Simulated scan of single mutants.
Amino acid sequence: MKHLTYGMILLSLTLSAAIFGFFYAWVCSTMWGLDAADPRVAISAMQAMNASVRNAVFAPAFFGTPVALGAAAGLLLMRGHLRSAAAFAVGAGVYLCFGLVLTMMVNVPMNEALAMVAVPADVESAGVIWREYSGPWQVWNQIRTVASGAAFLLALSGVMMVGRERV
């Protein structure tokens, strides 16, 4: 049981750090680069990236993070590590609500709407489309970035508490 618990802790830290890094990269490079590009290129590039992100490499971090955090919380609870379990459970809830569900309810519909757009030939029309998409998309992405970072930090604090709790 101890090895399973530590394995799940390691998996949850890895997945939560991976998804935080993924969202963070969009904040500090990808979207800034697209905003600086010709909007026709930005629209086409974003359409291509959104189409490619649904893959077996991305799925474990995106979908597995709340599962791994929740499983670690359950295993820690069964071993009597109440505060550690609570940190992992809160991390799971934060990511589930403000990472995964937010993405599915807000960012994915925005991406699907952009996928239906035919890239205009003129820069001005493309610029309007891109600005209407990019600004709101980035606000929601920043929220899920902060949430996934918070989930990782909560899990990390749970790890730090494991050694201090008396069982």
Rank of each mutant, 00 (worst) to 15 (best):
T30Q: 11
T30K: 07
M31G: 04
W32M: 14
W32Q: 14
W32E: 12
W32D: 15
G33C: 04
G33L: 04
D35L: 06
D35Q: 14
A36W: 03
A36T: 06
A37R: 00
A37G: 02
D38P: 01
D38G: 03
R40K: 15
V41L: 10
V41E: 06
V41I: 15
I43C: 01
I43Q: 00
A45W: 00
A48P: 01
A48M: 14
M49S: 14
M49F: 15
A51M: 10
A51F: 03
A51T: 10
S52I: 11
S52Q: 14
N55P: 05
N55T: 13
N55Y: 11
A56L: 14
F58Y: 10
P60M: 10
A61K: 00
F62M: 10
F62Q: 01
F62L: 12
F63K: 07
P66Q: 04
A68G: 07
L69G: 00
G70F: 11
G70H: 07
A73H: 02
L76H: 01
L76D: 01
L76P: 01
R79M: 13
R79I: 05
R79H: 14
G80P: 03
L82G: 12
L82I: 12
R83D: 09
R83Y: 11
R83N: 09
S84V: 03
A85S: 15
A85N: 02
A89S: 08
A89I: 04
V90Q: 04
G91F: 02
G91E: 05
A92H: 01
A92T: 05
A92P: 00
G93N: 08
V94W: 00
Y95K: 07
C97L: 15
F98A: 11
F98S: 10
G99C: 05
T103N: 08
M105G: 06
M105W: 09
V108K: 06
V108E: 08
P109W: 13
M110E: 08
N111Q: 12
E112V: 14
E112A: 15
A113C: 06
L114S: 05
L114T: 08
A115W: 08
A115P: 05
A115R: 12
A115N: 12
V117D: 09
A118L: 12
A121L: 13
E124N: 08
E124C: 10
E124M: 09
E124D: 14
S125H: 11
S125R: 12
A126L: 06
V128P: 03
R131K: 14
R131T: 15
E132R: 14
Y133I: 07
S134Q: 10
S134N: 08
G135S: 11
P136V: 09
W137P: 02
W137V: 07
